[in-house]
Nucleic acid binder design. Structure first.
Lengths: 178, 178
DNA sequence: AATTTATATGCAACAAATTGCATATATCTA
DNA sequence: TAGATATATGCAATTTGTTGCATATAAATT
């Protein structure tokens, strides 16, 4: 399981609540790790039981109380052990490609529309990543240093989305010609 | 759920046993859909109960008996309905990127090795896809016709793997420099 | 002769993810 | 002022996927 390790990663450098973790997933790991709030809160609970993380209640005047979690020594040890164990190549299950594969069953317009919908989303993601890259590249090199590895993951997002969009162009050329 | 629809897709044009489906997943959809034999056999059983597919026993002299499944009219209707309903953009959960993100926790050599392992696998996949493409492109255009849509899914595999490898190169440049 | 790979199917236990429900306050927007 | 969005957390039921186990034959390889 890796949701556990993804959460440890997000908590290791900076403590935070379940809601913080949720935001960090969206903002920082969103394009390579996705988790719902239900998953996150449950995991945090289990990880606390396992002694990987601990929390303190933080009362807030205006908003609901937060449980602020931080990684325990055991949690850090567990994370490092996982880091040193190789992971499998990411399993891909892409329903859109299944559809295209069986595209002969439906009107070509159905495929066209679905590709179009996905293109909008992928283009938006690429734009987001390019904006993040621009911010990073604008930093002085001393300020860039701590973000070099996250920047490499961002590059994966950029190259991945560009490849997706290039592919969508090929598909559109085919769909227009038919 | 889409395993169900992926199986319907594979059975729609050609009947087959669970083992056949397994092979078709590996050979045709392997780079965009993965399923274990346990998953497949269980799904086939459930889909049969739901009336989406039906089977006939096929006795074999030498090898174990096969259950040869085919799609029922209800199954085909279900598949077409799914085809016409838009799917979500593929959820990505990539453990390798989580590791890279938290790479500061381990020796850079650990990252280097893991990237190297993954590169071998991705390169092998790209080679496989390029060989399949070569076969397709060698066909006369009349013979290509029925495979145009599967070919587009293959292009996704090719562009995706090329993008992955291009990214790995960037990562290696960084890892060597440090 | 023994081992591995391929053919062929399946159950059971467990882990993980999704979907739906549930609550409560604050701020921002139409 | 009503509704949407953001903050903040969680349970329960169901669906999906993984891991381990189990069986049986045949062909190919070492």
């Amino acid at each position: 399981m890796s949701l556990k390790h993804a959460i440890l990663t997000l908590l290791e450098t900076e403590e935070g609540s379940g809601y913080d973790i949720l935001k960090r997933f969206k903002q920082r790991l969103g394009f390579f790790w996705n988790a719902s709030h239900q998953q996150i809160y449950l995991q945090l609970k289990n990880m606390n039981t396992e002694g990987l993380i601990e929390f303190e209640h933080e009362a807030q005047q205006t908003k609901p109380n937060r449980k602020v979690y931080k990684v325990t020594p055991l949690g850090k040890k567990t994370l490092i052990q996982w880091m040193e164990t190789s992971v499998k190549v990411d399993k891909v299950n892409d329903a859109l490609l299944v559809k295209l594969y069986a595209g002969h069953l439906v009107d070509i317009e159905v495929l066209r529309q679905e590709i179009q919908q996905h293109t909008v989303i992928h283009q938006r993601m690429l734009d987001t990543f390019l904006a993040l890259e621009k911010n990073y590249l604008a930093l002085k090199s001393t300020d860039q240093a701590p973000y070099q590895l996250p920047y490499l993951t961002l590059r994966r997002g950029i190259l991945g989305e560009q490849a997706w969009l290039a592919w969508a162009n090929e598909v559109n050329l085919y769909l227009k010609a038919n």
